[in-house]
């Protein structure tokens, strides 16, 4: 499990991940905040398998999450904002023609 090291700086920011409320520092990336909170599974990939951050530098695209309704945002490249709502990015399944997305 990831944990913080030694002294705790201020964590004045609160974000939401699914049903969890998470405290974060002002300059945390979303990925760092989620990992610190013990979350390892950020999304589901093409074969429905869970994935989490891998490179932490924006080149692997495995840390994708939905942020404030916007899909496929790189958690390691996004700085937290107070009140941010983060959700797991679902697998990129093309639904059947019956399931139409509302505009």
């Amino acid at each position: 499990m990831f944990r913080p090291i030694a002294t705790q700086p201020d964590r004045p920011i609160t974000i939401q991940f699914e049903s969890q409320t998470i405290e974060a520092s002002r300059d945390d990336t979303v990925a760092a905040a989620l990992l610190r909170a013990g979350i390892l599974q950020f999304r589901y990939a093409t074969a429905q398998e869970p994935r989490g951050p891998f490179c932490m530098m924006g080149t692997c695209f495995d840390c994708l999450v939905e942020i404030d309704g916007k899909p496929n945002r790189q958690a390691c490249q996004t700085i937290v904002r107070n009140g941010m709502v983060v959700r797991q990015q679902p697998a990129p399944v093309a639904a059947t023609p019956d399931e139409r997305a509302k505009p």
Partner: peptide, 13 residues
């Protein structure tokens, strides 16, 4: 590198 970035950036390991 990712583990090191997490350490530098967020003091998390």
């Amino acid at each position: 590198g990712g583990a090191q970035t997490l350490l530098k950036q967020a003091a998390v390991g």
